[in-house]
Deep mutational scan, measured.
Amino acid sequence: QIFVKTLTGKTITLEVEPSDTIENVKAKIQDKEGIPPDQQRLIFAGKQLEDGRTLSDYNIQKESTLHLVL
């Protein structure tokens, strides 16, 4: 699982696999929060994550925290 922290300070927990794409993660966030993926920007280690890449591409491991910017 990974954590996604929103600007409001809320933390969302997501069940993911390293092979999941960023697009996939955004879809999971939409399921939980109702935020359309095209409004979501995910930041990890100061980098904006691209939809077509996977979590493992960015070396995002379990218990990692991503930041969600709208």
Rank of each mutant, 00 (worst) to 15 (best):
Q1V: 15
Q1L: 15
Q1E: 08
I2R: 01
I2D: 01
I2G: 01
I2Y: 05
F3E: 03
F3A: 04
F3I: 06
F3Q: 05
V4Q: 00
K5A: 07
K5F: 07
K5T: 14
T6Q: 07
T6I: 12
L7Y: 15
L7T: 12
L7S: 15
T8I: 08
T8A: 12
G9F: 04
G9C: 08
G9Y: 04
K10R: 12
K10F: 10
K10H: 12
T11R: 09
I12D: 00
T13L: 10
T13W: 07
E15M: 15
V16K: 01
E17N: 13
E17I: 10
E17D: 13
E17C: 13
P18N: 07
S19I: 07
S19W: 12
S19C: 14
S19T: 12
D20V: 04
D20L: 05
D20Q: 04
D20Y: 07
T21P: 05
T21I: 04
I22Q: 02
I22W: 02
E23I: 13
E23M: 15
V25S: 00
V25G: 00
V25D: 00
K26I: 03
A27F: 13
A27S: 11
K28A: 07
K28I: 06
I29C: 02
Q30M: 13
K32V: 12
K32N: 05
E33Y: 09
E33I: 14
I35K: 02
P36H: 11
P36E: 08
P37H: 10
D38T: 11
D38L: 10
D38Q: 12
D38H: 15
Q39H: 09
Q39G: 06
Q39C: 14
Q40R: 02
Q40H: 04
R41T: 13
R41N: 09
L42C: 01
L42Y: 03
I43D: 04
F44V: 03
A45K: 15
A45G: 13
G46H: 06
G46M: 04
K47S: 08
K47E: 11
K47P: 01
K47D: 06
K47H: 12
Q48M: 12
Q48L: 14
L49G: 01
L49C: 05
E50W: 06
D51P: 07
D51M: 05
G52M: 09
R53A: 08
T54Y: 07
T54D: 03
T54V: 06
T54F: 06
L55P: 01
S56K: 11
S56I: 09
D57N: 05
Y58A: 03
N59Q: 09
N59K: 10
I60T: 02
Q61W: 08
Q61V: 13
Q61A: 11
K62M: 15
K62H: 15
K62S: 15
E63K: 08
S64M: 11
S64V: 07
T65D: 04
L66R: 01
L68M: 08
V69E: 11
V69D: 06
L70A: 09
L70R: 09
L70H: 11
